[in-house]
């Protein structure tokens, strides 16, 4: 059952047009945990003086990764939508480095899934950003 669900979620990520446009690649997806990498690209630059990636692109990465974590959770449904997402920016991402996001769906109720996520640019001990959020549970059988 959980294998089927992971398969659904994996295909789903591949067909998310915006995630695909940002070059995201799903690296891990299992039992409420997801890891997605987004390569550095010049068109994602938010600070022209330093070449640092825009927070908006990191938001999109965090949102996608958190949604994937929810869908891979054994107690969640096959679809989900973001209710809210809070992102804290710890430091600027290093220009030129890919961003790796890890999300964990740590609690699921009948209607809501709760997630936390972190993003780093190669050094896992010093995150670029962290996030917490709530997602809807849909299509639960």
């Amino acid at each position: 059952m959980s294998v089927d669900r992971s398969h659904i979620a994996k295909n789903f990520i591949d067909v998310l047009p915006h995630s695909r446009a940002l070059g995201m690649k799903l690296e891990v997806l299992e039992q409420g945990k997801a890891q997605i990498v987004m390569p550095y690209a010049e068109h994602l630059i938010g600070d022209p003086d330093t070449g640092v990636i825009h927070g908006g692109a990191i938001s999109a990465l965090m949102d996608t990764c958190a949604g994937a974590a929810v869908m891979s959770h054994p107690e969640a449904g096959a679809a989900t939508a973001t209710l809210d997402l809070r992102i804290d920016y710890m430091r600027s991402a290093t220009p030129g480095e890919a961003i790796v996001a890890k999300a964990e769906c740590y609690h699921v109720t009948r209607n809501v899934a709760f997630i936390r996520a972190t993003a780093h640019d190669g050094r896992e001990d010093v995150p670029v950003a962290t996030a917490t959020g709530a997602f809807t549970i849909e299509g639960k059988s």
């Binding site: 067909v15 998310l16 047009p17 915006h18 995630s19 695909r20 446009a21 825009h54 927070g55 908006g56 692109a57 938001s59 999109a60 990465l61 965090m62 949102d63 996608t64 949604g67 679809a79 939508a81 973001t82 997402l85 992102i87």
Partner: peptide
């Protein structure tokens, strides 16, 4: 089209809206 996050509905990507 590449701002879509859920092609089934279809709906704009939450991340794209956050970024906006």
């Amino acid at each position: 089209e590449d701002l879509i996050g859920n092609p089934m509905l279809p709906a704009l990507h939450g991340g794209a809206l956050s970024a906006f």
